[in-house]
Nucleic acid binder design. Structure first.
Length: 233
DNA sequence: AATGAGGTCAACCGCCCAGTT
DNA sequence: CAACTGGGCGGTTGACCTCAT
């Protein structure tokens, strides 16, 4: 069960979860590699981080994916390809791992998509034709390089930044202008907002309240009239 | 009841990147 | 500038579960 480096592998026990949660409650997130040293937990930093992000974090929503979430994921996957972290960042309460698993086990089947290795995922053959003020322009040199390739101009990020400038009127909500901070978190995700309270003892154990479903995302995709290729849909 | 197949999903792995020293 | 460290990502694995036989 223990690796060469003395770290344990495999499923986490309740005791390990408690140790990890106690550590995070006291010290906050980050410095994952210190957890093993300070708590004696026989888990590597990466494992701790993953366990927290994918399972223990109060912001993680459990249970089945709703139709709305499915639809959102399908749309985002069409736009972003297998950029699970980006997709998950826009599906409140869901982690990249959850989204990835759900796609691989349910949605790809549902859509009849064969598993591929491309980061473009389902949209690899026909890139989305974006009509948002020519925002999402595919680099001309991208013929041999995937346009989403991290080594090239992050076209998706640029595109999303442009997308994020869309001002959408939301039903029963105030007019919302999406903007970015210019960092990796392109849109302010609910998850991040919620996580921002972590480390504060008084608000640490907030419940996994129902997320105000972000109609902004669905509406955004609709409003911006993205001409997705719905392969086989 | 036993068991084999297939599905699900938590966790791991390897790679990459950014920040720090 | 190189080396090191922390953290993030996507792909893959394998333990566990369910169901049909």
């Amino acid at each position: 069960m223990e690796g060469e480096n003395g770290y344990k592998k495999g499923l986490w026990t309740v005791e390990e979860d408690i140790i990890l949660m106690e550590y995070i409650r006291e010290h906050g997130k980050g410095r994952w590699n210190r957890i093993a040293k300070t708590t004696g937990l026989k888990r590597c930093g990466k494992s701790c981080r993953l366990r927290w992000i994918n399972y223990l974090s109060p912001s993680v929503k459990r249970g089945d994916f709703s139709e709305e979430e499915d639809d959102l994921i399908i749309r985002l996957h069409n736009l972003l390809g297998n950029r699970w972290s980006l997709i998950a960042g826009r599906v409140p309460g869901r982690t990249d791992n959850q989204v990835k698993n759900h796609w691989n086990t349910h949605l790809s089947k549902k859509l009849g998509i064969k598993k591929g290795r491309s980061k473009l995922g389902a949209s690899s053959q026909a890139l989305p034709t974006i009509k948002v003020g020519e925002s999402l322009k595919i680099p001309s040199e991208s013929t041999s390089k995937a346009p989403f390739d991290s080594t090239s101009e992050p076209m998706d990020q640029k595109g999303i930044e442009d997308l994020s400038q869309c001002t959408v009127k939301l039903p029963s909500m105030q007019e919302t202008t999406m903007s970015t901070e210019g960092n990796d978190s392109l849109l302010p995700s609910t998850q991040e907002t919620m996580m921002s309270t972590e480390g504060n003892d008084s608000s640490f154990w907030f419940s996994t309240v129902d997320f105000p479903y972000p109609p902004s995302l669905m509406e955004l995709l609709d409003e911006c009239s993205l001409d997705f290729g719905w392969h086989g849909l």
